[in-house]
Computed example of a mutant assay.
Amino acid sequence: MVSHVAAVTMNSSEPARTAAFWAACLDGTVADGGNGFLHVTSAGVLVIVQPAPGRVADRETDVHLDLRAPDRDREVARLVTLGARVVEERADSHGRWTVLLDPDGRQFCVS
């Protein structure tokens, strides 16, 4: 069992502007992802733009990977043995996920 990249998620204080930029950049389209999220799709790539009102450009969690695994709990346990650290568990109408930090302190999520 291994993880695969489900999406690249970008925090933005102006989600509509950010989504429009990446859609134009990638020759993609923008769709409402619900809960304030915008989805940019292009050639098999999903970029999720999530609202982050207090975003600071040099913040290390400005862009993070969203990983999807068949068994989230087992994958999180495996990643922790590799050096990741669990930050918190989250859930919304899209589902449940775990927020982690990689060994260098970069945030990523597993659903």
Rank of each mutant, 00 (worst) to 15 (best):
M1K: 12
V2L: 06
S3Q: 12
H4R: 13
A6M: 01
A7E: 07
A7N: 03
V8H: 00
T9L: 09
T9R: 07
M10I: 11
N11A: 07
N11M: 09
S12T: 02
S12W: 08
S12P: 01
S13M: 04
E14K: 05
E14L: 12
E14Y: 04
P15S: 06
P15R: 08
P15I: 02
A16D: 14
R17Y: 06
T18C: 12
T18Y: 00
T18A: 14
T18M: 15
A19S: 06
A19Y: 04
A20G: 08
F21L: 08
F21W: 03
W22V: 01
W22Y: 10
A23C: 01
A24N: 06
C25H: 02
C25F: 08
C25L: 09
D27Q: 13
D27A: 03
G28Q: 01
G28H: 01
T29E: 09
V30R: 06
A31Q: 15
A31G: 13
G33H: 04
G34N: 12
N35T: 08
G36Y: 03
F37G: 06
H39T: 06
H39R: 14
H39N: 11
V40N: 01
V40A: 00
A43T: 00
L46F: 04
I48Q: 15
V49K: 03
V49W: 00
V49T: 03
Q50T: 11
P51D: 13
P51A: 11
A52H: 14
A52C: 15
P53C: 09
G54Q: 07
R55H: 03
R55M: 08
R55C: 05
A57Q: 07
R59W: 12
R59D: 15
R59G: 09
E60F: 09
E60N: 14
D62F: 14
D62V: 15
V63Q: 07
V63G: 10
H64L: 01
H64T: 00
H64Q: 02
L65T: 00
L65A: 04
D66I: 01
D66W: 00
D66G: 07
D66E: 15
D66T: 03
L67H: 03
R68K: 12
A69M: 08
P70G: 10
P70K: 01
D71Q: 13
D73E: 14
D73S: 12
D73Y: 06
R74G: 14
R74K: 15
E75K: 11
E75L: 03
A77E: 10
A77T: 09
A84H: 07
A84L: 06
R85M: 13
R85N: 05
R85V: 05
E88H: 00
E89Y: 04
R90I: 07
A91T: 10
D92P: 10
S93D: 14
S93R: 11
S93Q: 10
S93Y: 10
H94L: 15
G95H: 10
G95L: 09
G95I: 10
R96N: 07
R96Q: 13
R96I: 10
V99D: 06
V99F: 06
L100C: 12
L101H: 15
L101W: 06
D102E: 01
D102T: 08
D102P: 01
P103M: 13
D104Y: 11
D104E: 15
D104S: 15
D104G: 11
R106D: 09
R106N: 15
R106T: 14
Q107H: 11
Q107K: 14
Q107W: 09
F108V: 05
C109W: 04
V110Y: 04
V110D: 05
V110W: 04
S111W: 06
S111P: 06
S111D: 15
